[in-house]
Nucleic acid binder design. Structure first.
Lengths: 204, 204
DNA sequence: CACCTATTAGCATCTGCTGCTAATCCAGTA
DNA sequence: TACTGGATTAGCAGCAGATGCTAATAGGTG
């Protein structure tokens, strides 16, 4: 073998470098690993790694996709069924980037986000606001699982809705939550409800 | 003026096209708008719009920043103070993409995520798991606000920690939560705790 | 020794730009 | 009418970061 730490080791490092910084160029990689640019090219060819511009483009694409659909969408997950003011079902298939790398277990706030946004979506108003929630994580959820959240309005008093949400994976409960959500009329003033309680959530 | 719909109109369209697809190239823009590539260059110059590669790079950078720090980081927010098993403070400055575009109000799960990850970070163990939480959103939080979360362990029984979290903006409470978090020994088997309850969270 | 792998080198080519100069069209106006 | 000036188009040199190709070199191993 040619270089010091051997090819497999270099490949490992190369992956590592690219993981930390997908925008790094061949020349920079060559300098970092103490080999020639050509070697980097061959390595990338071997490992099936595209060029820097392509990597950047992919990152940008995927990231915008994630940010838009995962964190920016009105409802987290796919709304498969919805009866306004009554019940609804949403399905979320958590990807690896929603999970801890070490354990592959989905971070709690994604599960919460799905349940919360579903609860809010049930409310028939321009703007809906989550007031309180009591939640319980029953089982760890693995990335790639099919997370089905079912929500039902259990009580309604004026603008206040009580919503129960149960999330399941393969028929087994993994999360339960009781949400209190407030409907808000589109009053163009301050967003404020009743006892001043409240955090808002938009509705589509 | 030269082309059909006039320059200002073309500039409007150009912005629109770029907003929908930041990766589109000058040549494609030229075709879409029915002008020459040179005109597109001049337009971009006038409007202070960088080239396609630069745009892509920025999108990628910002997006990875978001995904990494907002949703992927071990602790959401900056940990400004931490006494393991006792108390901690984290600061989060929610950006516009954490908020509803319409109202500019930060989505609930970001606030929850900050509180939850802080509660979990307090626990002195390899892996910590959120079991249950009762939370209350007291006030809407605007994007750009400085969200300070303070957590305190109020009770500890074996592996079970009770953690109270209060989040404030400008000294005013905006969120309160009571978390029950479980410490888990690094047992390489199933991740399971006591009554089977539990959702896990990593710790750095 | 010949053979093989890994590495390095050089060169033509491509894409999507920048920066520059120049030509053209067309309207308003002295 | 001729002049002026904004808008548009064209062409060319150059750059960065690649690809694809050929070839030379260094180090084992049979």
């Amino acid at each position: 073998m040619g270089a010091r730490p051997g090819k497999p080791e270099r490949h490992r490092r190369l992956r590592g470098l690219l993981e930390r910084d997908p925008f790094i160029t061949d020349r920079e990689l060559a300098e970092a690993l103490g080999v020639s640019v050509q070697t980097i090219r061959l390595d990338r060819l071997e490992l099936g790694i595209p060029e820097a511009r392509e990597r950047t483009r992919r990152v940008a694409e995927e990231a915008t996709k994630n940010v838009r659909s995962v964190m920016t969408g009105e409802v987290i997950g796919d709304l498969t069924h919805l009866s306004l003011g009554e019940e609804g079902v949403s399905v979320l298939e958590p990807t690896a980037d929603m999970a801890f790398r070490r354990t592959g277990i989905v971070r709690g706030h994604h599960i919460f986000a799905q349940a919360n946004s579903l609860a809010v979506a049930l409310v028939d108003a321009e703007v809906a606001l989550t007031g309180t929630a009591c939640i319980r994580f029953l089982r760890p959820v693995r990335a790639g699982a099919r997370l089905v959240a079912r929500a039902r309005v259990t009580e309604r008093a004026g603008r206040r809705y009580h919503v129960d949400v149960v999330s399941q994976v393969a028929g087994e409960d993994v999360f339960r939550g009781e949400f209190v959500v407030f409907a808000v009329d589109p009053s163009p003033g301050e967003v404020r409800v009743e006892g001043g309680s409240v955090h808002d959530e938009d509705r589509p």
